[in-house]
């Protein structure tokens, strides 16, 4: 009988997909990874519905209501939840908007920007409402592991995932711990 693979879901909330690009930088190591895991919902599979998973990897902080719902769903369906990258861990660059009122941010982009025609702040019901501030995900749900970096290098992701899948404590070498 084939040993069942661990189910892994990933998503990018308020991030730039840089962490997911770094995940793809695993290159040929992805084949080794594919022996042990199977992706559930992820930008890599385009599966829309999140199933019951062993591991959830979150890139990005929370900046709108949809981010919050997705995060809560990941926490509910994933046994182990990982915050990957600076945005998930501290809000990152998007959280720099916390220095300003949300209204000022929107007006700066959509009504005071240059070259705008019929300037207005987008208000379609399909667009998730923005939160007044961007926050890291550990302020909303319990996080089991943190993997810092902007993005974490493929080597750091590989060390982390290898140790996690082997059931070992996570110990990253010095050169693989970075906040940038």
């Amino acid at each position: 009988m084939i040993e069942s693979k661990l189910k892994v879901a990933t998503c990018s909330l308020c991030g730039c997909f840089g962490c997911h690009m770094s995940l793809l930088d695993l290159d040929e190591r992805l084949f080794d990874l594919a022996e042990k895991i199977e992706f559930d919902r992820s930008p890599l599979t385009d599966i829309k519905e999140l199933g019951e998973c062993d591991i959830g990897i979150i890139e990005g902080g929370i900046a709108n209501v949809e981010n919050v719902h997705t995060l809560l769903e990941f926490r509910a369906r994933c046994k182990v939840l990982i915050a990957m990258g600076a945005c998930a861990i501290s809000g990152g660059v998007p959280a720099m908007r916390n220095q300003y009122e949300l209204k000022d941010c929107l007006e700066e982009s959509y009504t005071r920007g240059t070259g705008l025609v019929d300037a207005q702040i987008p208000n379609d019901p399909e667009i998730p409402l923005l939160l007044d501030q961007v926050h890291p995900i550990h302020e909303v749900v319990k996080i089991d592991y943190f993997l810092p970096g902007c993005p974490p290098s493929a080597d750091a992701i590989w060390t982390f995932v290898s140790q996690l899948l082997a059931g070992q404590p996570i110990t990253l070498p010095y050169t693989q711990i970075h906040y940038d």
């Binding site: 501290s90 220095q99 302020e139 711990i177």
Partner: peptide
């Protein structure tokens, strides 16, 4: 912070406006 092995800030961010 690297030296003492800090992986995440753990606490709730103040996001002070400075």
């Amino acid at each position: 912070a690297y030296y003492v092995g800090m992986l995440a800030p753990h606490y709730t961010h103040f996001y002070p406006r400075r």
